[in-house]
Write a protein that binds this DNA or RNA. Sequence first.
DNA 1: GAGTTTGAAACT
DNA 2: CAGTTTCAAACTC
Length: 179
Amino acid sequence: MWTPGGAVECQPPSVKPTCSSAPPEKNTLEQHTDSMRNFSEKSKKPCHCTKSLCLKLYCDCFANGEICNNCSCVNCCNNMEHETIRNKAIKTCLGRNPDAFNSKMHSSVQGAKGSYTRGCNCKSSGCLKNYCECYKAKIMCSSLCKCVSCSNYSRSKVKESAVQKSSHPDDNNTHHTTK
DNA sequence: GAGTTTGAAACT
DNA sequence: CAGTTTCAAACTC
Ligand SMILES: [Zn+2]
Ligand SMILES: [Zn+2]
Ligand SMILES: [Zn+2]
Ligand SMILES: [Zn+2]
Ligand SMILES: [Zn+2]
Ligand SMILES: [Zn+2]
């Protein structure tokens, strides 16, 4: 909890869960300059969600199991003021993926428990940009990935010889998903 | 800051 | 399950 000094933070909860049209509530708390330094420490990356209400995995805050704080999100419900809705959203996400929140990062994949085991599906980034979840997590792509033209390997030299069945030079995993 | 690109998450 | 749409971040200019 932070100490509201100027009373410039959240908006009154006017968001209705099943309402037809939600009024645009823009988070007015983002006056950096020197407000951030107050809390320091965490300084997590703020989200800028506008349509997900920060109640879907689109929102990094929500995906990481964190409450939005110092974010620029609109109509944010990822807070204790909307705990009921938030809990429902969490439940929905868990229904889709029981391990959705087990790992700090997004995970799904079979048998992933507290580890990144997502496997990316990049097609145009070569897994060398932050678009790639593997690259962002600073891990190499594995056989779980279905990326095309992957270069996210310790050995940047990836030969596409016919010898390689997959685009991945080193696949220690014998068990393949379904293929 | 505006506009584009990108691939995960969501939806059908 | 696959194809499509939605979404917010990463990136470019
Ligand atoms: Zn958010
Ligand atoms: Zn947030
Ligand atoms: Zn939020
Ligand atoms: Zn990738
Ligand atoms: Zn990967
Ligand atoms: Zn890759």
